[in-house]
Computed example of a mutant assay.
Amino acid sequence: MTAELVAVNSGPHSCSLAGYPKLEIRMDKGSRAHGAGQGSPAPVTLDTGRKAVIDLRYSEMNGKGPDTECPATASPADVAAPGDSATVRVPMVDQNAKPTKDTICGAEVRMSAPVAR
């Protein structure tokens, strides 16, 4: 499955996102999936109103089909900017900004490098 993590610069000045954010997705049964990126992505500078998008990839299958042993559904996520320890709890939403949940098998969600949009 794929999803996106989106951060918007709502401040009055440009800002920079340097690295991968901390991402921890909470599961219904108390377990968590953590975001993992590879390497050191180039910093992304965001003018006011611009957003950084990180593609997320994860499995909702155990290799044989839907897995009832998976940690059920996931929502919400705790996110912190790179190098920041303060997390923000964000809901998982669909393309229409409606609350949603998704099944994540495994403890890792792969993250692409941030891209400005």
Rank of each mutant, 00 (worst) to 15 (best):
Pro114Asp: 03
Asp94Gln: 10
Asp84Tyr: 09
Ala33Gly: 03
Thr2Ser: 14
Ser112Met: 06
Cys105Pro: 00
Asp55Tyr: 06
Glu4Val: 06
Ala77Gly: 09
Ile54Tyr: 07
Ala97Met: 08
Ser31Met: 02
Arg110Val: 14
Gly30Gln: 02
Val109Asn: 03
Ala113Lys: 14
Ser59Tyr: 05
Pro99Trp: 10
Lys51Ile: 03
His34Leu: 09
Gln38Phe: 13
Ala80Asp: 07
Thr73Lys: 06
Pro99His: 13
Ala107Tyr: 01
Pro43Trp: 06
Asp84Phe: 11
Val115Met: 01
Asp102Arg: 09
Ala81Thr: 09
Gln95Lys: 13
Leu5Pro: 09
Pro76Gly: 05
Ser31Glu: 07
Gly39Leu: 10
Ala80Asn: 08
Pro43Leu: 01
Ala74Pro: 00
Lys98Thr: 12
Ala77Thr: 04
Ala7Glu: 11
Asp55Ala: 14
Arg57Cys: 01
Thr87His: 02
Ser14Gln: 15
Tyr58Val: 11
Pro12Tyr: 09
Asp55Arg: 15
Ser75Cys: 05
Thr73Pro: 00
Cys15Ala: 08
Pro82Val: 01
Ser10Tyr: 02
Ile25Asn: 00
Glu108Ser: 05
Val44Asn: 08
Ser75Arg: 05
Glu24Tyr: 04
Gly19Asn: 12
Gly37Arg: 01
Asp94Ser: 12
Ile54Asn: 02
Asp67Thr: 04
Ala80Gly: 10
Ala97Thr: 10
Leu56His: 05
Cys70Leu: 02
Ala33Gln: 02
Ser85Gly: 04
Leu5Met: 08
Pro41Phe: 13
Thr48Glu: 00
Pro66Trp: 12
Lys29Val: 07
Ala72Ser: 05
Lys29Met: 06
Pro12Ile: 01
Val6Glu: 15
Ile54Trp: 04
Ala107Gln: 05
Ile54Ser: 02
Ala116Tyr: 00
Arg89Ala: 10
Met27Lys: 09
Asp47Asn: 15
Ala113Tyr: 11
Asp55Lys: 15
Arg117Asn: 12
Gly65Pro: 00
Thr48Ile: 04
Asn96Ala: 15
Pro91Gln: 07
Val79Met: 04
Val93Ile: 13
Ala81Trp: 15
Pro41Val: 02
Ala52Asp: 08
Lys64Glu: 01
Gly63Ile: 06
Cys70Pro: 09
Asp102Lys: 05
Ser16Asp: 08
Ser14Phe: 12
